[in-house]
Design a binder for these strands. Structure first.
Lengths: 265, 265
DNA sequence: CGCCCGCTTGACCCATGTCAACGTCGGTGG
DNA sequence: CCACCGACGTTGACATGGGTCAAGCGGGCG
């Protein structure tokens, strides 16, 4: 514990969120962790809020790892309608294998200022070649990302406005908790109501009304950019939120026994 | 051409749709194709219409390859609402890497009677180990599947009922064309209006009205289970359908030069 | 200090849902 | 061979969730 704490302090500005996320799936050895750190600190980039990280039509050159800040994947129709397709939180990778494709069919933009690591395809290959456990963990993260996308399909297709917003808030909160970015029952939510609308297929006006309703019923406390969920179970119930699609139950813990590396540094 | 034709005749009941699909991305050698055939003919299963291939909560044991027939991925909410998350057409693989996860967070069911190949994880690994070009092509297919899921998010979030149905019909037609299951401007569409509604987040009544409208404007001809699209461009325009997300432009053609195997048998 | 972005609210409207009845066709058992 | 049945498609009347438009408000920042 103390070792981990020292490690954390030492790596401020490093990919601790990614490591923490992957450790929801399996335990990483010190050398696994070191490899992730090495890979993710080679080329770091800073972007302001509301900038494109990569645009539709671009040829993907490398994998982007969000170290700090929020971003989203989005797609814009010709007449201006915009759909937010997913949110990227600290520790999230944008498309680990995207270079197989010739060009991006959508864009990724920042919400807040973002610090990210650009990981070249060769670095990615080296990392996975040398660390099978990381490979497994990255597979898990890829599959969970796909599961989230499927759940959004359900969200948009079947749920009411109230359920959609509630569901999204549950998901974001639980994902943030997984990377250590919650404090008790609260977290930051640096997203405007327009953006919530673009993610849930609702107008900003309706988002506002739904948020009022969630507030009035005591299911959320939302002031400025801070969200609190006093009773997560209750919100989950209202939103028909079933956490299983996030696959958080240490699916890869059988891997813990496969390597005899010591866990502490 | 003649060789290919003979090959096709010989492999009726074999994974010709998958091969054809992968060859939209890259050219496969005869040995590549043979390896796919060997892998996909070890264990073949038949199912009737309206049966689950795999249910929510099941532990995934193998990859399912649809050889013939239609299926869909779906998720059911507790109160009975059902969302169809994607359609599987002949040549489609259900989750090539799903065994990393402990259990399914959704179900896959048949629409028509289905013939499928069960591919064990070890066979899958052997196939990709021995055939890097197939590995690349499977990557492409995985990424396209993810892109389709994202496009469905846009479909449900931003498009009107008419656009949603139009978009879905364009997608299905073009995917079917890619595996050789269209005849001129028409194809089979063995899907009820209720199912179309569950896929697009519309009621069956509204689906019916939208279909009437598409028929009346001459954009589709739909009688029984046969769909014709006299002017695909026109339907695409109405549905705001941009084909780029299907990544059909032979992204992997640079691989054609990497191996000097003869293409004909 | 003032402006602009984001939030809030009210009035009104429309796309789509719901309910209910009826039509049609293919299959099946008597 | 016919009668029935169930699944699917179609249509009309009516209800409603959520959209649109417009105005006002509040607070952070240049």
């Amino acid at each position: 514990m103390l070792v981990w704490l020292r490690f954390r302090v030492a790596v401020v500005g490093m990919p601790q969120h990614l490591i923490r996320k992957l450790e929801q799936f399996t335990r990483l050895s010190a050398s696994n962790r070191q490899a992730v750190v090495n890979t993710a600190t080679q080329k770091v980039r800073f972007l302001g809020a509301h900038q494109d990280i990569i645009s539709e039509g671009d040829a993907p050159e490398h994998v982007n790892l969000i170290l700090e800040g929020w971003a989203y994947r989005y797609k814009q129709l010709e007449d201006g309608r915009r759909q937010i397709i997913s949110f990227f939180l600290p520790g999230d990778l944008c498309d680990p294998h995207v270079f197989v494709l010739r060009e991006m069919d959508h864009a990724i933009g920042t919400i807040t200022p973002v610090r990210l690591a650009e990981i070249h395809r060769d670095q990615m290959l080296r990392l996975t070649d040398e660390h099978p456990r990381i490979t497994q963990a990255l597979w898990w993260e890829t599959l969970v990302t796909a599961a989230i996308q499927r759940e959004w399909t359900v969200n948009l297709g079947q749920r009411t406005g109230l359920e959609r917003i509630g569901h999204l808030l549950c998901e974001l909160f639980i994902r943030l908790r997984g990377v250590g970015l919650t404090e008790g029952d609260s977290c930051l939510l640096p997203v405007t109501q327009v953006e919530l609308g673009d993610a849930t297929g609702l107008s900003n006006v309706h988002v506002n009304r739904v948020l009022q309703e969630l507030r009035a019923s005591g299911l959320i406390v939302l002031r400025g950019k801070r969200l609190s969920i006093p009773d997560l179970r209750a919100l989950q119930a209202v939103a028909q939120f079933n956490v299983n699609y996030l696959h958080l139950d240490r699916e890869g813990r059988h891997l813990d026994a496969n390597e005899s590396e010591r866990v502490s540094a």
